[in-house]
């Protein structure tokens, strides 16, 4: 990165951090889509999603995150005892 001043380097670093955060989010979304597809799209593929499949995909993401938060909370409680 030669030839760039300190302000430019700082700006680039901030840009790279933001892109890295974006990459992490995209990677989570791929993982969720993979997991939730297997769990929710169980019947044969139609021209559109069947009843319940769309809601299942959304619930799958929400409940996974709930599970993750719940486990963290439980472990924190146990540690406090």
């Amino acid at each position: 990165m030669s030839g760039l001043g300190e302000a430019d380097q700082k700006e680039l670093q901030a840009f790279l951090d933001a892109e890295q955060a974006k990459a992490r989010v995209q990677s989570s979304i791929h993982t969720f889509t993979d997991r939730c597809w297997d769990q929710c799209i169980t019947s044969s593929i139609g021209a559109r999603f069947g009843r319940g499949e769309e809601a299942c995909l959304s619930n799958c993401v929400e409940r996974f995150l709930d599970t993750s938060l719940f486990i963290v909370k439980k472990l924190e409680e146990q540690r406090g005892q």
Partner: peptide
């Protein structure tokens, strides 16, 4: 089947994406 499945997978990706982004911003 593959043509339809591809459309459904992209759709699933978009549903997951908007749910995840909404949830993270709520948290």
């Amino acid at each position: 089947c593959i043509t339809r499945c591809l459309e459904r997978y992209f759709e699933a990706f978009n549903i997951v994406s908007s749910t995840y982004v909404r949830r993270v911003s709520n948290e």
